[in-house]
Structures are given as C-alpha cells and as structure tokens.
Amino acid sequence: MSILVLADLHEGQLAGATAHVVAAAQAIGGDIDVLVAGEGVQAAAEAAAKLDGVSKVRVADNAVYAHQLAEPMGALLVELADGYTHVLASASTTGKNVLPRLAALKDVSQLSDVLGVESADTFLRPIYAGNAIATVKSDDTLKVITIRTTGFDAVGSSGSATIEAVDVVVENSQSSFVKEELAKSDRPELGGAKVVISGGRGMGNGDNFKLLDGIADKLGAAIGASRAAVDAGFVPNDMQVGQTGKIVAPDLYIAVGISGAIQHLAGMKDSKVIVAINKDDEAPIFQVADYGLVGDLFEILPELESKL
C-alpha cells in the first residue's frame, strides 16, 4: 500500500489537522507520503517532514497553487496520484473542495468524513448528521478519502522524512483569488482546542458572548456557538459547532444556553467531558452532559469565572 496525504495549510503554515490524517494513513498501513502544495510553503514542508510515519514530503511550491484553489489543486493531484493506492486529506473545507475532483477525474468514488479504519478497503463514516455510522467497503483501485480528524489521535513530530520538490505546474485561467477574511483570534483554533466553551440562543445577544471570554481565557479554551446563535446573528458562522459547522471533540466541552438540537450534538458529542449550563432543566443537552447545572447563565458565568 502506498498513501498520499494532502497537507492542510493555515496561512501558509502546516495545520494541525495533517498529523491526524497521517495517523489515519498509519491505520490503513503502508508507505506514507505527504504533499504540501501552495506558494511559499517551505516551512510547512519542513514541519510535515517531522511528522512520525512519513517517508517522503513532496512539495509543489508555485504561485498557481496559492490559496489552494480547487481547479489547480485537483489537476495537480491527478498528475501525482498514479502509483498510490490511497489519497487522503482532512475533511476541512480544502479537503472537501479538492478531493472529489480527483476522484471524479480518476473515475472512482470518494469517501467523506471517515472516522474509523477497519482495513485498507473498509471504513467507518457518519451519515445522517452522525445519527448513524455506516461501514463501507470500496473496491475502487484508488481510494480517495477525507478524514474526520477527531477520529484519529495526532501522530508525534520526531520524524525526519526526505523532502523533494514536485515540478508539476498546471494552468488555471478559470478561477482566481480575490480576498480572504479570516477571523483573528489569540485563542486556540476551535477544531484543535482541548477546551471549548460554546454559547447558544440562551446568550440573548452577541454582546453577551463576552461573558464567555474570561472563562475561555482562564481555561485556554476556544469559543464556539450553536447554529441557533449563528442564525440569530449573535456571532459569525465560523464559530458554529455542529453538523453544519465544526466537529469538535475536546477534553472538556461547556455548553452554555444551548438546548441541544440534534445538529449541535452531532458536532460535539464525542467530547470527553460535557458540561451543560441551561435554565431549562428539560433541555435535551442534559441527556448527553456529564455534568449539568440548571440555572441562570447570567449569574452562573460570572461566578464560574471568578472561582476558576
């Protein structure tokens, strides 16, 4: 078996997700290469070379791959995929954007959001917003897979893989980058944080989300939100935890003023410890919470912040 992992980049640096995808590749077994594609990505390539289990890092460093637009990235993968049995990427918005193109051009199916590996051709993946888990077997000669990173513990970074340049340059006249507005934050990234504190519609308005800041600072937590809070316009969509937002599995998840709709639970129910704070003691969130505290969040949050 021979596996190619497409590295995730965040502002040109190697994103944490890649170490999880390499772990998934290890679960499949075989030689693991990592492809780092972008513009000015030498540092990311060096970081990828340190990931345990990686034999070779292939670097496609060219302006055409800047921002990892779907069309050139798909074309690059088509050029490089021959000789591999599996091509993996994280189920990030980049992985999901690019990998189906590779699959279609190679006339194979693609498996999305794989969270478990049974064997080299059989995988577990969530369907119906995580309300069912499907076991699927692929008989395609090339298996193209996006990995749900919460399903695999990250590999360490004590390796020293070789780095080689890829000189494939593709044409792209169809799509161009205009701008990017990334939310700036000193807090850990939602997907990789050890502690997440999320607010729901019960927060009342966007200003009240400030009540979560102090607690997040003390716990080193990322701040999330339910879809209800996003739809109500309290906070931006990139804070959304749930089936239609981020899937998280931190050590500690604190849900504040969140009722616990199925679509939210699908995004956080694999957290190790769940705390729910809600004034409605019948809220469904309490059915999944390890520790529930019934009461007024506007009294509880300041008290919690002062006592932590």
Binding site: T135, D139, L304
Partner: peptide
C-alpha cells in the same frame, strides 16, 4: 464500487448528573 456493509446507531452517550452549584461543578 462502494458497498454499504452495515449501518449502526452511534454509541449512546449517557447523561450524567446534575450539580447544584458552581462550586460543586468545579
């Protein structure tokens, strides 16, 4: 070429306990 071998419900998460105060929670 992809076959569905089986479909299962995800592991049920059991609800835990209610705590009475912030102190007990911490």
């Amino acid at each position: 070429k992809v076959s569905l071998l089986k479909v299962e419900s995800p592991a049920e998460r059991k609800g835990g306990v209610k705590v009475a105060s912030v102190d007990e929670l911490i």
